[in-house]
């Protein structure tokens, strides 16, 4: 189950991964990618480029048609269903469609990730309040998730993803519905977790997020990963767009 073929500092390793949906829709084609432990990687690309598919493959929500995926020491091709929880506990994922339970409160939705680890109730409550405070949602603690705006729901799904301080955080368009100030709060949270050792892979259209030189930006185009040089060109072209958010970050 645990892989010994990849170096221990590599957190996510994809080798020639392809994903084809029936009948013949090629979502990913021969994608090879290595992400180091503690790295922040931005995954960009147009809608339909395969960003979400890539995140779903890494979190083993789907299986690749071809290729090999290693995540946090697990060879996903050989990981049996009964041990899937071992992988999922290392990953916190903020879904593009939120995956919230609309009838449950915001606190419940966040706590669910900690409850599966049998975290003591008091710790869960403290952590939930802490996260809501950071994301400026304290006043929504007992509100039903179904009553929140999309931006608020997005923050709740982020809070749930990071609640256990996972080794890997996968975020699918985490700031898609957020204003500048809230985006800055979210990114601040991500950077803090990164400093604690979490590896981040953020799929985004928002070019304002990856202006730091140290950030690695990769681009998917029609399911294919572009070379680093090609990606840099795109980044430079986007440069003049915004500076305001960057200051906030």
């Amino acid at each position: 189950m645990a892989s010994t073929t990849i170096p221990p500092d590599v957190m996510i390793d994809l080798i020639k991964v392809s994903k084809t949906y029936p009948p013949e829709v090629q979502a990913l084609v021969d994608v090879s990618l290595s992400i180091q432990r503690g790295e922040i990687v931005y995954l960009t690309g147009m809608s339909g480029a395969g960003k979400t598919t890539l995140l779903r493959l890494i979190s083993r929500m789907e299986k690749p048609t071809k290729g090999m995926i290693d995540v946090a020491g697990f060879d996903l091709g050989k990981l049996p269903q009964r041990n899937m929880h071992l992988l999922r506990r290392k990953i916190g994922m903020a879904y593009q469609d939120f995956k919230l339970l609309p009838e449950r409160t915001v606190a419940d939705n966040i706590a669910i990730a900690m409850e599966v680890l049998y975290t003591p109730k008091r710790t869960m409550e403290r952590r939930t309040r802490e996260l809501l405070e950071q994301l400026d949602l304290s006043h929504k603690y007992a509100t039903r998730a179904g009553e929140l705006s999309r931006g608020e729901q997005q923050r709740v799904t982020i809070a749930r993803a990071v609640a256990n301080v996972p080794e890997i955080i996968l975020a699918d368009e985490p700031t898609g519905n957020l204003d500048g100030e809230t985006t800055a709060r979210v990114m601040d949270l991500f950077y803090r977790l990164n400093r604690k050792g979490s590896t981040l892979l953020i799929a985004t259209h928002d070019t304002r997020l990856y202006r730091h030189d140290k950030d690695r930006v990769i681009e998917l185009r029609f399911g294919r990963l572009q070379s680093a040089a090609q990606t840099r060109v795109i980044k430079a072209e986007d440069q003049p767009e915004t500076t305001e958010i960057q200051e906030g970050l």
Binding site: M93, L101, L117
Partner: peptide, 16 residues
């Protein structure tokens, strides 16, 4: 069903 699906995604064991 929705909640069970989510529980799997956040790392719940079969026993849980």
């Amino acid at each position: 069903q929705q909640e069970l699906e989510l529980l799997r995604l956040v790392g719940a064991t079969n026993n849980y």
